[in-house]
């Protein structure tokens, strides 16, 4: 299963970004192969539609689950439609590694 985690930088000790569309980086974790990949989010500086664009990107990557701090209504509707599980974690000061540890 492919899991996307929003991140503020391109390594596992980076802070978990609680925004979805405007997260700087997205960490792609595959829980079968334990492979970790980082992808730059190109939609962070859009004036509008960052959430939708990022959601479309996730759909094209065939991600099964997205972990972030919040999802806007448009992004959430789109992800619901494509049956992608969204997980909201509202804790502060988590790193990407903390989250990977929890889902292992």
């Amino acid at each position: 299963m492919k899991i996307a985690i929003t991140s503020s930088n391109n390594n596992v000790s980076a802070r978990f970004d609680k925004r979805f569309g405007r997260a700087e980086w997205i960490c792609l974790y595959n829980d079968e192969t334990r492979q970790i990949e980082f992808m730059k989010n190109r939609h962070t500086n859009l004036n509008n539609g960052a959430g939708t664009k990022t959601a479309e990107k996730m759909i094209s990557l065939q991600v099964d689950r997205i972990i972030s701090g919040d999802f806007g209504p448009k992004a959430k509707n789109l992800l619901d439609k494509f049956e992608i599980q969204v997980v909201v974690v509202r804790e502060n000061n988590l790193t990407v590694e903390d989250i990977i540890q929890r889902i292992k």
């Binding site: 689950r65 972990i67 619901d80 049956e83 992608i84 599980q85 969204v86 997980v87 909201v88 974690v89 989250i99 929890r102 889902i103």
Partner: peptide, 14 residues
């Protein structure tokens, strides 16, 4: 979190 229709197990993903 949400549970989409194609997932069948009901457990917390974290």
């Amino acid at each position: 979190f949400t549970i989409p229709k194609k997932m069948h197990h009901n457990a917390c993903p974290l």
